[in-house]
C-alpha cells in the first residue's frame, strides 16, 4: 500500500438506476445466543448517495453495520457489492471491497499517534530490503497523514500527537478521516456525532459532505432527525431487526421518520 488514494477516484461516474447498488444486504439474520438482533434485514446503498440508517435503540443498526463491515459475519442472508455476492468474514474482507467503517465504539488506539492510527494495518514500509524486514517509513506516513487530513479539512495540531491527547471531536474527526481516506466505495459511520457538541458535529458533517462530493457513498447512523433530513439523500428505517421503510429525505418530515421508527403509522414506501 503505497500512498493514500485520492477520494475523488469515482467522481466521474454518475448514479444510474440500471447500476446495481454499491452495497446491499438481503435477508440478514444475526443471533447473539438467544437474542435475534437481525431478523432478515435488508439494506441498500447506491453510488454517491448519503443514506441515513435510523431506528430505535436496540433496533439492530450497529449489528447490521458490523455485518456489513465484516466484524460479525451474518448467520443467514447475503451481502452484495456492486451486485456481486461477497463473504465478509473479517474486517479485512470488507476493506478489500472498499467498505470502511467508523464504529460506534470508536476503534482507535489511544497510545498511538494520529498518523499511526490513520495507517494502522496499512503501514508504509521503507523501500528495499529494510522494508521487507518491516522497517516503517514514518516520514512518509507523517506527510501522507498531514496531507490527507488537510484535504479533508480536519484540523489537528500535529499528526504525531497520541490520540489520547485529542478532544472528543478531534478523535471523531480522525476516525472519520481514516475511513474516508481508505474507502473506495462506501463509508459507514455509526453515530459519529452522538457525543459531540454543535461545533464539533458541524466539523464531522463537513467531512462527510466532502466525502460525498468526492463520489463516495456514505451510510450514516444517527438519532438526530433534523440532521438526518439535512444531510441524507435517502433514509432507511430499521425496526426490530428488519427494514421498516425506505424514504426519500426531501419528501418526509421528522415526524414521519419518528413514526416509521416506532411503527405507529404507515408511511408511504419509496419503491424507487
Amino acid at each position: 500500500m503505497g500512498a493514500i488514494p485520492t477520494a475523488a477516484a469515482d467522481n466521474d461516474q454518475q448514479p444510474t438506476d440500471a447500476e446495481p447498488p454499491v452495497l446491499e444486504a438481503r435477508g440478514i439474520v444475526k443471533r447473539f445466543g438467544h437474542v435475534e438482533a437481525l431478523r432478515g434485514a435488508d439494506f441498500t446503498v447506491r453510488r454517491g448517495e448519503v443514506v441515513a440508517l435510523i431506528g430505535d435503540n436496540g433496533a439492530g443498526k450497529s449489528t447490521l453495520i458490523k455485518t456489513l463491515s465484516g466484524v460479525h459475519p451474518p448467520d443467514e442472508g447475503e451481502i452484495r457489492v456492486g451486485g456481486r455476492p461477497v463473504q465478509f468474514s473479517t474486517p479485512v474482507d470488507a476493506r478489500r471491497a472498499g467498505v470502511e467503517t467508523v464504529y460506534q465504539d470508536l476503534a482507535v488506539a489511544d497510545d498511538l499517534s494520529v498518523a499511526a492510527n490513520l495507517y494502522l494495518g496499512r503501514e508504509i514500509l521503507r523501500s528495499g530490503p529494510l522494508g521487507r524486514l518491516g522497517l516503517l517509513d514514518k516520514r512518509a506516513m507523517r506527510h501522507g497523514a498531514a496531507a490527507a487530513l488537510d484535504e479533508l479539512g480536519v484540523r489537528i495540531p500535529r499528526v504525531t500527537t497520541p490520540i489520547a491527547m485529542l478532544s472528543g471531536g478531534q478523535r471523531q474527526c480522525v476516525a472519520v478521516a481514516r475511513a474516508i481516506i481508505w474507502a473506495t466505495n462506501v463509508v459507514i459511520l455509526d453515530e459519529p456525532t452522538a457525543a459531540l457538541g454543535v461545533v464539533q458535529t458541524g466539523r464531522v458533517l463537513d467531512v462527510v459532505r466532502r466525502a460525498r462530493d468526492a463520489g463516495m457513498s456514505v451510510v450514516l447512523v444517527s438519532h438526530n432527525m433534523p440532521q438526518v433530513l439535512e444531510i441524507a439523500d435517502r433514509v432507511e428505517v430499521l425496526r426490530l431487526g428488519r427494514r421498516a421503510a425506505q424514504l426519500r429525505a426531501d419528501e418526509v418530515t421528522t415526524d414521519d421518520l419518528v413514526a416509521a421508527m416506532t411503527g405507529s403509522t404507515n408511511v408511504d414506501r419509496d419503491e424507487r
Binding site: T101, V108, D110, L112, L120, R122
Partner: peptide
C-alpha cells in the same frame, strides 16, 4: 496497537 486497543488492532486487519 494491540496493547492500546486490541479490538481496534483486530478491526485494522
Amino acid at each position: 496497537a494491540m496493547g492500546s486497543n486490541l479490538e481496534a488492532a483486530r478491526r485494522s486487519g
